[in-house]
Amino acid sequence: MIVAENVEKRFGDALVLKHVNLRVEPGEVVTILGASGSGKSTLIRCINGLEALSGGKITVDGHDVSTKAGLVAARRASATVFQLFNLYPHMTALRNITLAPIEVLKLPKAEAEARARALLEKVGLGAHADAYPQQLSGGQRQRVGICRALAMQPRYLLLDEVTSALDPEMTGDVLRILAELAADGTTMVFVTHEIEFARHISSRIVFLEQGELIVDLPTAQFFAEDGGLAVPRIRQFLSKMKKD
């Protein structure tokens, strides 16, 4: 379980996250919605330890990310897929995927590679194992990014706008893979602007407004007239997203 309690994050004087409380149980897909600058990425980066908390506490399966040992354990439990893929450009797709399993999980090379190839096969990149990132399209790179995360056999997948750098066709490819993962019961914390997709795969939706988590509802209720839509800010946000 991922638990965020009273999380606070400051950048200088700016309070970017204010007393955020969030729980993600195994098997859930939780989508974080919110306007640009509301703190979605920052929250993800606090969970995976790329930003230090200014207050409050985050634990992943009980491991406190603000302690050194806790962070190591928390990072083993979760894996991140990045908006801009963040692949290692000097390594092949295969090596991008096997690096951490071999060096961190200490898997034998042959086993790590067999697993990586199976993952690449699954996302339709079986023939591209030896390609370097710049030889791949954006959508293909992101699929490698997803394989790299899955190769760690994480209990939680953290995804921050993983399709927003892709054109619509490639977005479809990536979303299909994520939908399959969700159907398989993968636990995900998902930041996206793809509202329809979020509605389709999420078990819960939370809404960040200027660093405050103002709504946390099961998906159906979030989109119900007497649920999320009853909150003016959310109605406004959703109608604006539909127009875009």
Binding site: T80, N86, L87, P89, V104, M152
Partner: peptide, 27 residues
């Protein structure tokens, strides 16, 4: 070297010396 890659290596659990060796040094 792009900071993004180093962040990726960090969240995947590589420690400083591993990041230096596998990500930073070759590039």
């Amino acid at each position: 070297i792009d900071r993004d890659q180093i962040e990726a290596a960090k969240v995947f659990g590589l420690d400083r010396s591993q990041i230096l060796r596998f990500v930073i040094a070759p590039q």
